[in-house]
Write a protein that binds this DNA or RNA. Structure first.
Length: 391
RNA sequence: GGUGAGGUAACCAAGCGGCUAAAGGAUGCUGACUGUAAAUCAGCCGGUGUAAUGCCUUCGGGGGUUCGAAUCCCUCCCUCACCA
């Protein structure tokens, strides 16, 4: 029992409050653990993985995992960490995103024992007087305490009324779901606390709030997020996941070990002191890839990476483009036709800077003629884009 | 409702009649060095074009003044602050 609690608390950031948590555990019944995601974008990232893994732990111990899809709240947009109001999403986008979330999430959660709920279920039918009743329960001062809002206010940036409603709705979700524990990233603290407040107001025992640390993104500074484009998506291919992980800084690597693999501190120390950072990173990349795609795929990703970057070989399979429709044409036209490059100007730049190799040697003449007779050609653009031009 | 300040490249921010495709920063890309690490250095960073002091599109929207506008005028839309 004590062991169980320790394990669950491991790797968490803030828990409010621990006493309450221990009491809930002592109830000897499955607790209702809520984790919410808003389907605002098509992909889930390794950043989400941290929370899912924690949820999974609860699940493995026999507690009830509730995955809340915030299909209504997605229409508002969580103001967390935002310096401006989000653009509104269409219903269609939300439906699509939800589908991809569900496709990805069960790589990490046990589908048999996960309750998937949508907050539109109870938010959509609310009548206006019920909404009013909800808003009556919280004061403006309380809302404005929130760090994001305080900052925006100070920076003279707009805050819309609807954003103020966001924490209220998230809190209300907890009331409806009668959550015992709510998980979230550490930037969710305010929203999660709102759940406690509202539950008490509705005469329920307040949920335990448990936050997990935010994962820093590939840029090494900001949190991993789709909007910063510094992320690894759960749906990325094994070789992408592997490759992207290899590109993180050494300092960051230990965070990833800790948060994504749950590696204990002692093991980390040993790794740091005894293993070459490159090997440690490969190990990390392989383990995470394995977690998402299984062992064979992870191993293959590692081998491909090593032959490509360590041994500088050209990859075995690369996208292939045929000259059939174009006939003999210039290098520039052919490459542009692959749609792999944003513009012809971008291609010229690439060539000017020596970033384009044809059959292994740099080319800088955009007018070079590619002749189907001479095909196939092997092309490399930058470090990692390879393609084959066939007749 | 009143008063004042703003809206510039997918981000921040200068410019306030020609020399402005628009300074600077951040991000990104390419190259060198490496371990596709970090740090560092160099270059690039609207499109089109063999090339040019070429052409096209861009400074919230629309209209106007001018040989010429991001820069001046009119009008509309949006944001912020203070007062009520």
């Amino acid at each position: 029992m004590k062991l169980m609690a320790e394990k669950l608390l491991q790797g968490t950031d803030t828990v409010i409050e621990i006493e309450g948590f221990l009491k809930k555990l002592a109830l000897q019944r499955p607790l209702r653990i809520k984790l919410g995601v808003d389907p605002t974008r098509p992909d889930l990232t390794l950043g989400h993985m941290v929370g899912f893994l924690k949820l999974r732990q609860f699940q493995e111990l026999g507690h009830t995992a509730i995955l809340l899809i915030g299909d209504t709240t997605a229409r508002i947009g969580d103001p967390s960490g935002r310096s401006e109001t989000r653009p509104a999403l269409s219903e269609q986008e939300i439906t699509q995103n939800t589908q991809t979330y569900l496709d990805q999430v069960f790589k990490l959660l046990d589908p048999e024992h996960t309750h998937v709920r949508y907050n539109s279920e109870w938010l959509a039918p609310l009548r206006f007087d019920q909404v009013l009743d909800l808003t009556r329960r919280v004061t403006m001062a309380r809302i404005l305490e929130r760090d994001d809002f305080a900052k925006r206010l100070a920076a003279k940036q707009p805050i819309s009324m609807v954003e103020c409603l966001y924490p209220l709705l998230q809190g209300y979700d907890s009331v409806v779901l009668q959550a015992d524990v709510e998980l979230g990233g550490s930037d969710q603290l305010f929203n999660l606390m709102m759940g406690r407040r509202l539950q008490e107001d509705f005469g329920q025992a307040p949920q335990v709030v448990m936050t997990v640390p935010l994962l820093i993104g590939l840029d090494g500074t900001r949190k991993m997020s789709k909007s910063y484009d510094n992320y690894i998506a759960l749906s990325d291919s094994p070789s992408d996941i592997f490759g992207k992980l290899m590109s993180i800084s050494d300092t960051l690597m230990w965070d990833y070990y800790r948060l994504l693999l749950g590696t204990p501190a002692a093991t980390l120390e040993a790794l740091k002191n005894e293993e070459h950072p490159l090997l440690a990173k490969k190990q990390l990349a392989q383990s995470i890839t394995e977690r998402l795609h299984g062992n064979p795929a992870a191993l293959q990703a590692r081998n491909a990476f090593e032959s490509l970057f360590t041994n500088r070989e050209t990859p075995a399979d690369m996208p292939e483009f045929s000259l059939a429709t174009l006939g003999a044409t210039t290098l520039l036209e052919a490459l542009y036709a692959t749609q792999l490059f944003p513009s012809k100007a971008a291609l010229r730049r690439l060539m000017d800077q020596g970033g384009l190799k044809l059959n292994g040697s740099p080319v800088n003449d955009p007018r070079l003629i590619l002749d189907p007779q001479q095909a196939p050609y092997t092309l490399q653009a930058g470090k990692r884009t390879f393609l084959r031009i066939s007749p």
